[in-house]
Design a protein around this nucleic acid. Structure first.
Lengths: 185, 185, 185, 185
DNA sequence: GTGTAAACGAGACGGTACGTCCTGTCTTGCA
DNA sequence: TGCAAGACAGGACGTACCGTCTCGTTTACAC
């Protein structure tokens, strides 16, 4: 029988999500076990398996629901300022332990779908801002905004991923400045 | 006492590296087990644990030693052509299952040091080429070549990482074209 | 938390005991492994470790439950005949491979408590018979029946233990005859 | 090639025997490992395997060479006194940890031959004393001295083996008294 | 004295079994 | 009757020793 969502205990569901988030923050992804989540949530293991197929989707849902994503700064009219602010928020977010752990978790479990989902909102905003800039002539029309977004986000994600050098606002600014030269008419 | 490297059996060492590489290619990282490597290599488990602490460093060494890294295309004088070729090789490499799996393995095990090591040679070549271009005036002197490399590699790694869209030579070319606009005087 | 005996699977428990007994008979104690028991019983190793601490107690329980102890020959009125019969049964029992192996197992694991438990029923019968003989004047009242039982059983166990000479009914008879001379008024 | 006993290092041999005895006393038989003996003796494992086939014979030799066997009390003319003294020495010996451990070791390894060898000297003395008593008419000629020795030693070994009650001189005396009644004319 | 052959210390090797941990499924009993 | 509790089969983990097998290094006899 498929689980009957109507009868689902919201109490248990929330306890599980909270426990998962706390544990992934404390232990990192690979040391996180379903058993530990169940125990900490005061829940039977079956109750987890009934509703989630594995650690990945569980953490994803936990993060979407409870995670500290939120910050969408308002855009002003200045393209450079807007992009800089946008990237700096990305940098901040990646610096948070929970976000970091969940992203790496999804990454490894080949749940790239979920990871992409997690990162999509920012990318969409970025692309939208670039298209707006195209409409007012600040960005050339021939520019593929998807590629432009790859440059902006990729450069930052690159450093996060490899930890070659610490993420910083300065780096994000440098990235924006360089990319803007490529986009302008 | 630490193991005595002088008495190490090269026969066993190579058998282990080969087996590890074959298995990670066949099964992917998470389904790879030390036991399976030992069995396939005809080796005791202890002989693996004696010399490697975990799957990550084992795969790394296997890849460095036996992996198909090699390709360093000769540079011609044309900056655009050189960068395009360089990025296309990167794309190819990431498309190989073994390379892909090993990178994700290191990533997950937080062996960013090893992952960076794996990716460093290409980055160095890229930066070197950019510096050469600066010397002949093809790239502005104010450009931070490290940031430029972040743009070029980050954009490609981004797609590899998220699998949002398949890696392709066209995309790499588009990235190069866009970045070149930012670099030129 | 201690295992919850109420939820214990009797199916698994019996399969384990049967497998243990078959294997100890086939291989002897020292070549018996928990892994082999688990495999033959179609059971996870943990299910064995959950309920038994080691091979010794496992075999003991197996033997008590499934072993061919049973034989308690009826006593006739003749003291000499009764003691002879009793010792001959002991000799027979010690001659059985399973009993032999289990006893030596317990001995080695210093589980003398269990070994004594295994041998106790016979000793109690023997002492009881001697006390009855004391009541009818066939055995002097000053005799310590515990010591008398030590003589009877000890002499037989001695040979079993050291394998100096094969156990035999004749030897048992000789022991009884000699001891009777010491007991009679 | 068989090992060349002429070149055998007496230094190593003694170090091994000493280490074996110390370790079996400290750990008991089953927790004693060849590796530990080698390490403690400052000797390569191969040097042990070259000269002994397993733990059993090693411990046996160690015990025969270094063990505290020795005590053979002089006999006086009194049969009862002589037997009592003899058994009391046996009791004392079995009470020593090293002797106890080595006996149980040999017992379990089915090296009953070695165990019997260890216990034989006392049995021979006992049988000899009984035969002497037969010659002077203190013991009936029909008595099988081997069976008589089984009674005497068996009763004591019985308690040692099962640890049902602590070994004691009193018990040994009671055994002697009872057996003497069976032996006398 | 020197040469050579064995025993030696050290310890890596292929294995086996250990006892623990966790997975994902199944079962029981309480609320 | 839904859920906590947790037993279950399975299987990988990392460790401990096994007994065998080189490695150089003494050591001691034969020349």
């Amino acid at each position: 029988m498929p689980p009957d969502a109507a009868r689902r205990s919201d109490r248990s569901r929330r306890a599980i999500l909270v426990a998962a988030l706390e544990l992934v923050e404390a232990l990192g992804y690979s040391r996180l076990t379903i058993e530990a989540v169940a125990t900490r949530a005061g829940v039977g293991k079956q109750t987890i398996y009934r509703w989630w197929s594995s650690k990945g989707p569980l953490l994803f849902e936990a993060f979407v629901e409870l995670g500290p994503i939120g910050q969408y700064p308002p855009t002003c009219g200045d393209l450079a300022a807007d992009l800089r602010l946008e990237l700096r928020v990305v940098v901040e977010e990646l610096g948070e332990r929970r976000f970091d752990q969940v992203c790496r978790a999804l990454l490894h479990e080949a749940r790239d779908d979920l990871l992409a989902l997690l990162l999509t909102p920012r990318r969409l905003r970025l692309e939208e801002r670039l298209r707006a800039a195209q409409r007012v002539g600040e960005v050339r029309l021939e520019v593929d905004v998807a590629v432009a977004a790859d440059l902006l986000l990729g450069a930052v994600h690159q450093r996060w991923l490899l930890r070659t050098e610490p993420l910083s606002g300065q780096h994000a600014d440098a990235v924006v400045d360089l990319v803007l030269r490529a986009l302008r008419g």
